[in-house]
Write a protein that binds this DNA or RNA. Structure first.
Length: 596
RNA sequence: GGGGCGGUAGCUCAAUUGGUUAGAGUACCGGCCUGUCGAGCCGGGUGUUGCGGGUUCGAGUCCCGUCCGCCUCGCCA
């Protein structure tokens, strides 16, 4: 093989006269006719124009040159020279070209299913990009993403290594867990009929590392959750996972704030500014989200008490059932938002569980449209509670607290988009703290952890954990940037009594807890330090820095919505003998599925 | 599990109310062209209209089923 002496992004004017060899892919070819062919040769580092010139290139090289097609792989030895014509300002190597002397065609390509060309690759159906990922990844844009991701992990390792964190690997084959997401399971051969689970996160192991005296742990690790994906969610994703001993909440928030602001700064030049801390309650009440986007205002006002006096049925019955009425003032919304748009908002509210989306406009000092005639009696009170001005639109979130808030919160996001309130170049983050410990699950008729079962309550809330768990505030915290949750963590429970109590509140019998988490409860009995930590969603960090809504863009080999890898055609069939060895028989009939 | 959108040439798309031989750009193939750079010009259609049924004189188009992809609700401690 003709060995390269430098990369396609390297040659400069200073190298003219030098004989070099480049290897790479033919990005484009421009055949000018007998005696002159240009190709752009591309590798990860850049592109160089190679010229096959009848006057300077040997006849044989000339002939091969004119037969080249896009994405053929070649090595070319030649002489660097300053271009005759105008330099190409789009290329770093645009002032020079390589005059081909010797060429080796390493591999020709069939007609390509997709072209690795940033000009129109974004138009190509994603199905094709995923099936031929090795071609898609050749695109400069995808190469930039791979590189940025690498820079982020590199920065992360250095940042935490500098601060005494140890990178420790935790197992992939672990025991199934009762709480949380659906586990991927793996059959055991030595104990046929028993199963491993793939980790949803290394949670318990990192806590045990704290008990083991590691003091500070970090890992960039795969997490696996067998749940339906979304645009920003994959079953298989990566976390920057951390845990620290002898810390309180503020210690974790401080060091993680430093990490977040410095990684944005260093890797992308983005200034996150300060990261304010707001309570979950304020976030829900004012923004209708536990991960509010604070790049724009549009806050809510609770008008439950204001509209109580009124007998409008929708409000009255919601309040009667213990619900609330939230109002969002949209300044100037009366004229800028069309009927079609507000109808769309109502659909959004309904999608998130609200009955509808009552609204009124304030025009010439009077309520018009929507529910104006039903709430005329409390007009003055509403105007003053919301500081309404002429031309404002008011949208109401009605229902049980979480439904009223989150449905209006989703509407808030769309309104901001429609009114152009979102500056896409701006990055604003905040910590959401003081989460509740539990939420009540109507279906299962029991408490479920708002964060996870190892989250400690705030020290001052210990009494409530026993007597009034629904009001108990946890030590949990989430870091949200531009309305996206990028990290979440908590101070953990480090004494077995509290841990048992939480399991009990979650409806986990002592026996069950012992079976599933016995080793953790044991560990807590043998000298567990107070500890806490956090996990950053690496994929979402990369998404935000690269400016994409699609998580598949930032994963080299992502899966589709049905968990398929289109390139390698996973999942695949297993060898029947292998299954027999594992004691597994498979029944995929409709009946069998229906029974599950 | 539910809702929505889509599947036509290698790729991106078009095809009137169900009506002649399913078209265009690009890629690809052939030819021309010595300074191009998303080269240009001339010529070439390379097709199981995702798959299986059905209705009809006639289906890319309508109906039923199914598969695949995307968005989404549930789900994601």
């Amino acid at each position: 093989m003709l060995k390269r002496t430098c990369n396609c992004g390297d040659p400069r004017k200073e190298n003219s006269g030098e004989t070099i060899t480049l290897s790479g892919w033919v990005n484009t070819y421009r055949d000018q006719g007998k005696g002159l062919v240009f190709i752009d040769l591309r590798d990860r580092y850049g592109m160089t124009q190679v010229v096959f010139d009848g006057e300077d290139s040997p006849q044989e090289t000339m002939e091969i040159g004119s037969s080249l097609r896009r994405e053929d792989v070649i090595s070319v030895e030649g002489v660097v020279r300053v271009r005759d014509g105008a330099p190409n300002k789009k290329l770093a190597t645009g002032e020079i070209e390589l005059v081909a002397k010797r060429i080796e065609v390493i591999n020709r390509t069939e007609t390509l299913p997709i072209l690795p060309d940033d000009h129109d690759a974004d138009q190509i159906g994603e199905e094709h990009r995923l099936r031929y990922r090795y071609i898609d990844l050749r695109r400069p844009k995808m190469q930039r993403i791979l590189k940025l991701r690498h820079q982020i992990t590199q920065f992360t390792r250095n940042f935490f290594a500098d601060r005494n964190f140890l990178e420790v690997e935790t197992p992939l084959l672990i025991s199934p867990t009762p709480e949380g997401a659906r586990d991927f399971i793996v059959p055991s051969r030595h104990q046929a009929g028993r199963w491993y689970a793939l980790p949803q996160s290394p949670q318990i192991f990192k806590q045990i590392l704290m008990v083991a005296g590691c003091d500070r742990y970090m890992q960039i690790c795969k997490c696996l959750r067998d749940e339906d994906p979304r645009a920003d969610r994959q079953a298989e994703f990566t976390q920057i996972d951390l845990e620290m001993s002898f810390v309180e909440r503020d210690d974790v928030l401080d060091i993680m704030s430093e990490f977040a602001t410095s990684i944005y700064k260093e890797v992308s030049g983005i200034d996150l500014g300060d990261l304010p801390r707001i309570s979950w309650s304020d976030a829900m009440n004012n923004y209708g989200s536990d991960r509010p986007d604070i790049r724009f205002d549009l806050q809510f006002t609770d008008v439950t008490d204001v509209v109580k006096a009124n007998d409008f049925k929708v409000f009255a019955s919601a309040i009667e059932q213990g619900g609330v009425v939230k109002a969002m003032r949209v300044p100037g919304g009366a004229s800028t938002l069309t009927r079609k748009m507000t109808d769309g908002y109502a659909e959004i509210a309904q999608t998130y569980g609200a009955g509808g989306l009552p609204s009124v406009k304030l025009v010439d000092g009077e309520f018009t449209t929507g529910i104006s005639k039903f709430i005329a009696s409390v007009k003055d009170e509403l105007v003053s509670a919301l500081s309404l001005e002429d031309g404002d639109l008011v949208l109401f979130g009605v229902g049980p607290f979480r439904v009223a808030c989150t449905s209006l919160g989703q509407v808030r996001l769309q309104v901001a988009k429609d009114m152009g309130l979102v500056n896409e170049d701006e990055y604003k983050g905040l910590w959401v703290i003081d989460f509740p410990m539990f939420d009540w699950d109507e279906e299962r008729e029991r408490f479920i952890s708002e964060h996870h079962p190892f989250t400690a309550p705030l020290e001052s809330e210990l009494d409530k954990l026993r007597d009034n768990p629904i009001d108990c505030i946890s030590s949990g915290y989430d870091l949200c940037i531009n309305g996206s949750e990028v990290a979440g963590g908590s101070i953990r429970i480090h004494n077995p009594e509290t841990q048992s109590l939480v399991f009990e509140k979650l409806g986990l019998s002592a026996e069950e807890a012992k079976t599933k988490f016995g080793f953790l409860l044991d560990a807590l009995q043998f000298g567990a330090p107070p500890h806490g930590g956090i996990a950053f969603g690496l994929d979402r960090l990369v998404m935000m820095m690269i400016g994409t809504d699609n998580i598949r863009d930032v994963i080299a080999f992502p899966k589709t919505q049905t968990g398929a890898d289109l390139m390698c055609e996973a999942p695949g069939d297993a060898d029947p003998e292998h299954l027999e060895e594992l004691g597994i028989t498979v029944d995929v009939s409709d009946d069998a599925t229906a029974q599950v």
